[in-house]
């Protein structure tokens, strides 16, 4: 009973802390970017000010359905992260996180703006690139632990990354897509605001945009938590590594140009697929992993 209560407290604490960590991470991102461009940059907590500002602004929505979709994006992102910290079914978690993305794409299709349409299509391409990697990662985790539950990873007793180094690398390759960073930031084009006018976010403003930003922080933390999951008995090491990888991605974001969607699909599918599938094949051939036992 005590253990159950403790894990629930930890889960609630993590869900409450996630948006703060996400906001501070994006604040650090803006500061780091500014310093790399020889600017002073905003304070670290600027994203929270921005969120509050958006909250108070007038909100234009194309339809009430669009407002609902912005809200659903936020809710599904929060639910996915909550399910992860509650150690639930990984398949369900991946489906919920893709549902959040689908909401965003549908929302961008609500407006008539060509930029919004373009952004929506590119967002679909991004999903096409990283969703298979996520599903393959879940299949690999099943092969290694014999269970789709996150609990299975905890029961394994040693870090998952020992069995699944390929999957871990594949997820790292897909991380810039999820974090909306160059070279794979094709749908929102964060660095060039004018180019496709923020793509998927074109038609969102004010409160809806604040909700999407909030949901995005959750998604980011969700992805970093997924990376940390691979180090489970050494969860602290996983968390530290996940943050380090995120900082590397910030630097890559500032160094690399944004590339075309064809390159993104090729790179993520060739490298990511090969790594994840070969990892699965090696597991099967060697007969390691609880699924074959």
């Amino acid at each position: 009973m005590d253990g159950w209560l403790l894990s629930l407290t930890v889960a609630v604490g993590l869900v409450v802390a996630a948006p703060f960590i996400g906001g501070i991470l994006s604040g650090i991102d803006r500061k780091l970017t500014a310093r790399m461009q020889n600017r002073v940059g905003p304070p670290i907590i600027q994203p929270f000010y921005d969120l509050l500002k958006l909250w108070g602004k007038e909100s234009f929505v194309a339809s009430r359905f669009q407002a609902l979709l912005a809200f659903s994006f936020m809710v599904f992102s929060v639910v996915a992260f909550t399910l992860l910290v509650l150690a639930q079914d990984l398949l369900l978690i991946v489906f919920v996180i893709s549902l959040a993305d689908v909401c965003l794409v549908l929302g961008s299709y609500c407006g008539r703006s060509p930029y919004s349409y373009l952004g929506g299509r590119r967002e679909l391409l991004q999903m096409l690139a990283y969703e298979p990697i996520l599903i393959l990662a879940v299949v690999n985790i099943y092969a290694a632990t014999g269970s789709f539950m996150v609990e299975g990873v905890f029961k394994l007793g040693f870090p998952l990354v020992i069995l699944l180094p390929g999957v871990f690398l594949a997820l790292l390759i897909a991380l810039p897509i999820e974090a909306r960073k160059s070279p794979f930031d094709i749908s929102a084009s964060h660095h060039a605001h004018q180019e496709i006018v923020r793509g998927v976010f074109t038609e969102f403003s004010g409160f809806s945009l604040a909700l999407i930003e909030f949901g995005h922080w959750f998604k980011l933390i969700f992805y970093l938590a997924l990376l940390a999951l691979f180090w489970v008995p050494l969860l602290w090491l996983g968390a530290v590594l996940a943050f380090i990888f995120y900082f590397i991605i910030m630097i890559v974001d500032n160094i690399f140009p944004r590339l075309t969607w064809t390159f993104m699909l090729k790179a993520v599918w060739l490298a990511g697929f090969t790594l994840a599938v070969s990892n699965l094949i090696v597991l099967a051939l060697l007969g390691v992993g609880l699924a074959w036992a």
């Binding site: 602004k57 234009f60 060039a192 006018v197 923020r198 976010f201 074109t202 969102f204 945009l209």
Partner: peptide
Amino acid sequence: MLHMGNPKHADI
């Protein structure tokens, strides 16, 4: 201060 290309995200 961010340079926005989208009037819907702008303040000024």
